[in-house]
Computed example of a mutant assay.
Amino acid sequence: MTYEDLGYNTTLEKYKNEQNLNSFLLGRIVLEHKDRYTIKTPDNEFDGELIGKLRFTVQDRYDLPAVGDWVAFSEYDETKALIHAIYPRKSIIERQAVGKSGHIQIIATNIDYGLIVQSANRDFNLNRLERYLTICNASNVNPIIVISKVDLISNEELSFILNQINKRIKEVPVITVNNQENGYNALQSVIQKGKTYCLLGSSGVGKSTLLNNLAGSQQMKTAQISTAVNKGKHVTTHRELIVLNSGGILIDNPGMREIGITDTAIGLETTFETIVEYAQNCKFKNCTHIHEKGCAVLQGVTDGFIDEAAYQNFQKMEKEKLHFESDLQESKKKAKKFGKMVKNFKKQRGDTKY
């Protein structure tokens, strides 16, 4: 294995030289667990943690390593490591943190392609598919739709699903896979050496089975769908980066039942390009596309040029985005207020080093 097999490129090499990081070892985060990180090099794996300076200057989640990151580190005690710097990220896939208003959760970094997996027999949902597309588009990640378990439905049912996708989603590759012989050949053919792919989807859609087939070995446990509630079981419990024999790099994820949209207008504009194009012809620049007279978007829905379900989904995600932006601003105000309080406290006690 080489650094190129892990996704290393000339941009990262240039940064290393410019920042004088040549004295440090180089590796990629393949596993994250609280404040501990598994760092992979072509020859070894290290159990890493942040140096004190980095740990005490953290301001938000973006300042901490995530699966997919490249880091500069030093080795101690054979397989232990101290992380000194995080290399710049070319992409970040994120969502709203579950149960935490105004907070984000980083799913993975430095991703080239997002494999959006939905199962044909139980999980297929166009609205959810558009949510994943919005996350990918906002992150500058190329989406690929993967419909799994197509051997469990009829050809007529599969045709119906593909027609639904083609009607609402344009210019995004769609690949079908099944657990029969050669059922993953089409997906295998798009995996490129040195490129990083992130699996996105709910529990039970077959992400772990897909990973095992691409890897050619049992990398992840698999489980049956719960017959009691018809929901997938959480087999994957953490994010992990795996280098495939074919040369590609795959990041597996726990299933996501909630896919909250962050403050990413570009993602919505790319996913709902038709709606945005119609919005340019609205009578008012600040049109909400809900009730205004002269709204080109509403007229497009009425005339059948804009899919009504897509329009409703767009409105729902737009409201989520605005709500997240409001929560984010409130969180920043509270953090700023707390910072001033700490600073004043140190000043009052005579601590000049604040």
Rank of each mutant, 00 (worst) to 15 (best):
F24N: 09
R55T: 10
M341F: 13
N212C: 14
T209Q: 09
I93H: 02
Y15C: 03
I251T: 02
E94P: 03
W70N: 03
E130N: 06
I242V: 15
G201T: 02
G183P: 11
I259C: 08
L126N: 10
V117D: 01
Y37L: 07
N281M: 09
N140K: 11
K340R: 15
L268H: 00
D63Q: 03
A228R: 13
L129M: 14
G194L: 09
A223I: 01
K347W: 07
F314C: 01
H238A: 15
H84E: 12
F284G: 00
T176C: 12
Y15E: 04
N137D: 04
T288C: 08
F338W: 12
F284Q: 05
T176E: 09
V297L: 06
Q219K: 11
K53S: 08
I111E: 03
T109I: 09
G99N: 11
D43K: 13
V174D: 01
E318D: 10
K321R: 14
K346F: 13
S226A: 14
T237G: 10
L250Y: 03
F46P: 12
I104A: 05
N140I: 08
W70G: 03
D123S: 13
H234I: 08
Q315R: 03
H84V: 05
F345W: 14
D151Y: 07
R55P: 06
S154P: 12
Y311A: 11
S23I: 13
T11M: 09
S154T: 15
D112R: 04
A335W: 10
I251H: 04
P173N: 02
K207V: 12
L187I: 01
A66N: 09
E320D: 14
D327T: 12
K16W: 03
R61V: 14
E13A: 15
Y132M: 09
V71S: 07
V71P: 06
I29D: 08
N166K: 10
C198D: 05
I106P: 10
Q348E: 15
N185F: 11
T134Q: 02
I145C: 07
D252Q: 05
G7S: 04
N166S: 13
D123M: 05
P42L: 06
V71G: 03
Q118E: 13
F124I: 06
I93M: 13
A66V: 09
A72H: 03
S74I: 05
E75L: 05
Y15T: 05
D303A: 05
N213R: 14
M220S: 15
A265P: 08
N179V: 01
L82E: 10
L31S: 15
A108L: 02
H289W: 00
G52S: 04
A120C: 00
L21T: 02
D303N: 07
V205E: 01
N163D: 15
G294E: 04
E277Q: 11
V190T: 14
V67F: 05
K170W: 05
T288V: 06
I165N: 01
G7P: 00
T288Q: 09
G206V: 11
